[in-house]
Amino acid sequence: MLEIGLTGGIGSGKTRVADMFAARGAAIIDTDLLAHEITAPGGQAIPALVEAFGPQCLRADGAMDRDAMRALVFADPAAKARLEGITHPLIRELTTSRAAEIARAGEHPYLIYVVPLLVESGAWISRVGRVLVVDCSEDTQIARVMSRNGFSREQVLAIMAKQATRAQRLAVAHDVIDNDGPVEALTAQVDRLDQSYRALSAAGITQA
């Protein structure tokens, strides 16, 4: 089965595009959702998180306090490395097992991994057969995140500064979806790529 890595900067519209591919029959594994799963109450990462950061890293319901941890790792690279050392192996394990289940079921024409930090991680580029970048201008990113999350412009710029640049993402892309315009403009682009991915997968072509 053809496996595609879908990525893009914050506010680019990755989730919307992934949902559109899912509606056309693609299998989707979203690593952000897996991260939420393992840090939910009773999640696989919770015991190690408490051991590493103390009980204050949890909310009252037992889930990881994402806002508190985001602030901590943003300011402390060592804390970021500890957090990633706990969560990343669990996410990789879950990703591998879910992909195997999807392949065994044989119900989908191709598989898309949604990986916000695909370019930054490095390993994902060699794992997937194609890289699909959801692209938009930085001004569009900033406006969307300010509207969606209520962040200030400075907060959004600080997040973007920690991510790969637009040029770095485009440099590794096999396919690009332009999401600078209205939602309606996405449909034709997703339809075109859906047909292309189906044809490649059916032909047994799993690498770009």
Score class of each variant (00 low, 15 high):
I4Y: 08
L6S: 03
G8Q: 08
S12L: 02
T15K: 11
D19E: 15
R24Y: 02
I29A: 05
D30A: 03
T31K: 08
T31E: 09
L33R: 15
L34V: 11
H36T: 11
E37Q: 13
I38H: 09
T39L: 01
G42Y: 06
A48N: 02
V50W: 03
V50K: 04
P55A: 14
Q56S: 14
L58F: 08
R59Q: 13
M64I: 00
D65M: 05
D67R: 15
P77Y: 08
L83H: 11
H88I: 00
H88G: 04
P89I: 07
L90E: 08
T96N: 13
S97C: 12
R98M: 14
R98C: 06
A99I: 07
A100C: 02
A100Q: 12
A103R: 15
L111T: 13
Y113L: 15
P116C: 05
L118V: 00
S121F: 02
G122H: 03
G122E: 00
A123D: 09
R130S: 11
L132M: 04
L132E: 03
D139F: 00
A143V: 02
R144K: 03
V145D: 05
G150D: 08
G150K: 01
F151D: 10
F151R: 05
E154W: 00
I159L: 05
Q163R: 05
A167K: 11
V176K: 07
G181V: 03
E184V: 11
A185S: 15
L186A: 08
T187G: 12
S196W: 10
A202C: 04
